[in-house]
Amino acid sequence: MSTATVENEPASTVDLGESGDGAGAIESFEVTLKVRRYDPERAEDAWWDEWTLTMYGTDRVLDALHKVKWEIDGSLTFRRSCAHGICGSDAMRINGRNRLACKTLLKDLDTSKPITVEAIKGLPIEKDLIVDMEPFFQSYREIMPFLINNSPAPTAERLQSPEDRERFDDTTKCILCAACTSSCPVFWTDGQYFGPAAIVNAHRFIFDSRDDAGDMRLEVLNDKEGVWRCRTTFNCTDACPRGIEVTKAIQEVKTAIITRSL
């Protein structure tokens, strides 16, 4: 591409102004963490534990959970891995809202009151903040989450215009953390509902110009537990840590079912 070479070479030296000094030292503050505990090996019912911790300006809810686990109570149990919002392990209910613990900075919450942390809703709780994810992945698998293309593959890549690629970009960002599905009031009362995440992943293929099985997926989602259960409460869009317009994606799938007149 000829555009490749037209680039302005940045200046060798610039005046940085204040950005060379950075902000001052990181401030510390006290925060109370209130976690809903559950461990059938220890007690039949769930209970709440509270800890007051000294934390710092760049700390996230995950750091507070780690501080408890590593320094106070090793039995506090939660999933986490990448710790920067890309693996989707640590979706939890923080102050009543579904979020990733590793992407929620403590300083952005109201630290004058205890920060409540609970497991996400609608999936069976196993221990503390860990839920059984299997029903969630079961719904995901049912929408056939893989490219289906029946024409013979070319030797090089299948072509796709940048516009066609852009059409489904938003829904490719999903990390399957279940924050959306477990924020959905319909899913809370009807565990059979596919839920937003499965629909988002169906959307990702339905609107991919390379895919041939859009109609099959639309048929699956036209089921009584499919898209029509969505009541457009936007909880899912608010909950998505990847900023996917989940409700919009669901609406587009609904429209596709109607216009492709199944």
Binding site: L147, L159, P162, F205
Partner: peptide, 20 residues
Amino acid sequence: AVLDLEKMGLPFNRTPEGKI
């Protein structure tokens, strides 16, 4: 390896001609 992934469905960024 790249072409395998494309055929499996990986959404690569595209050139104006539609190539990877």
